[in-house]
Every structure is written in structure tokens, then in C-alpha cells.
Amino acid sequence: MTPTLDIAGLSTHFFTRDGIAKAVDGVSFSIAPGEVLGLVGESGSGKSVTGFSIMGLVDQPGRIVAGAIRFKGEDMVGADAQRLRSLRGNRIAMVFQDPMMTLNPVLRIGEQMTEAIAAHSKATKSETEARARDALGAVGIASPEERLAAYPHHLSGGMRQRVAIAIALINAPDLLIADEPTTALDVTIQGQILSVVQRLVARSHTALLWITHDLSVVAGLADRIAVMYAGRIVEQAAVDDLLTRPRHPYTAGLLASLPERAAHGGRLASIPGMAPSLLHRPQGCAFRSRCGLARPECGNAMIADRQEGDRRFACLHPLADPARQVM
């Protein structure tokens, strides 16, 4: 089966006054229809730029310098602007951390929703209105009739995010890219959003790329997780393999830093130092200066990906996999 999204060797660089920032540097992954991939990374890891690159939304001074993005087998990097526009908002949709990135503050919710429908399909006025109403109901918004007449500033942050999700999903896209959509929201509201997205995506068999810094969120949501560090994916595997048996020292370090796994009153295992600047990334493994297992050869050339079953990681001295040793 053709994957919904297939990315190979994607590199997006920013040509700034201070030098070339390699925000995304050789990223490869694919998402099958109906699959949920969690793309996890800390700030500056390039996870958001990856999302923007797929949408064709990278602005100057940034540019996709290498790699292929194939949407259902169709090349997106070389596609012309018109083709990209017809895919965006129809077959591919995106929601952002700030819902006001997609909502127009001076238009009523109803106008924005019917516009999104009318842009990509021919339907009568009453049909589009009915669809808009249903879409709001589907994201759990009470009295949708009333909300259609409201402006974005009348709604709470959580409600705005749900409207943005309703608009993103209104044309039943094949791919939804969600960039930290619950980060700014409260726990109880985050739960609402997660449950809505989970239901809708399962119903329409949409492939979902969920970009986040929070491993706990994708633990319960995703099928697979990819971990990014300094512009590269250092490890990707099925959720359970990655969270319980990480092979890359960075993944392991990240998991160990989470307070929820630590005993109360103890010390957290922290990763020493900090992420390198994207302008001066060291040769070889970018994590080696913070890694307890690093050896001199980690600084040699680029570390190639290793494939082990469903898991892929880029490390010369990975942590042992207990499951494999038993065999």
C-alpha cells in the first residue's frame, strides 16, 4: 500500500546573516493511512520546521535544499504553487499551537467554515451550512448554531482550537499535521481535544502527524514515535518499543528526565549540557557531547541509520535491547 506521506532525506536550511542553520537535515519517515506518528523533540530540534516543510510553508530565508516529500506517491517538493494550494486545506490540513494562525479574527466562524468547504467542493448553501454545523457538533461544541454566528474572540482558547480542528477536518483530509495543538491548553481541555482528534481521525482513516515536546501525550495517542534531535531523527519505533526499550541514548535520557517515572523525593536523571546551536552543529553525532556512551568514533562523519525490524536509529553504541538478547 502506498503510504499517505513518505519523506526521504528532507533537509530544510535557513540562510541567515549569521550562517546556515540546518533546521532539518536528512529526515526520513513515512505514515500509512490511518496511522498516527508522534514527532517528538525539544525546542530547536526541527520538528515544527518539518511540519512547515510538508505544507510548503517555509518562508525566506529558509529553503528545502534536498530530499523528497511524497504525498500518496505524488512529489510535493517540485509541485507548482497551484497544485500545492489545491492540496492544502483539502487533502492535507494543519493545526497550530495558536488557533488564531488559521482563524480570521474579523470573520464569523460560520463564514470561515463555509468558505473552507466551498473552496474545494461544489455544494449548495444549505448543504454547506449543514456540514459546518455537523463539523462543530463533531468536535463537541455545544449549540453549534449559535457558535456559527460568533467571532473567534467570543470563544475560549480551547473552543477556538476545536473550531480550528473542525475546519481542518471538514474536507476529511488524507493527512493532518498537528503542531503542538494542546500545548497552550489546560489539562482538562487538552483531554477534550485529544479525544476529538482521536475519534475523527479513526473515522475518516486520516494519517496524523502529531508534533509535540510531550512524550506523555503521544504515548496514548500514537502508533509510532519519531524522536528528533538537532535537525535529525535519532530514533523511530513503535510506541511501546520506544518508550520501554529505547536504544538511542538521547531517547533514554529524555525518558529518564521525566519526573513522572521518578520516585518522589529522589533525584531526576538529567541530560547534562544543552543542545548544540543549529548554526554550529558538530560533525558526526550531535548528541555526543552530552552522551555518557560516546567514543571518539562518534565524531566521525555522519552516523548512518540502523534498521532493526520496525525500529530505526542513528547511533554507533546503542543501549542494549533486552528483548533481543533473550532471543
Partner: peptide
Amino acid sequence: LAGAPRLEDRKRAFAAIEGEI
């Protein structure tokens, strides 16, 4: 406590309390 996502979750059905703050 129930709404907070946990690392131990696997393909959990998120169920949230209704209503806005």
C-alpha cells in the same frame, strides 16, 4: 488526574470532562 496524559498509556481512549472552564 484522569485527564492528564501518562507515559504508560498505549492507544488509550481519551475521555474528557465536559464543558469549558
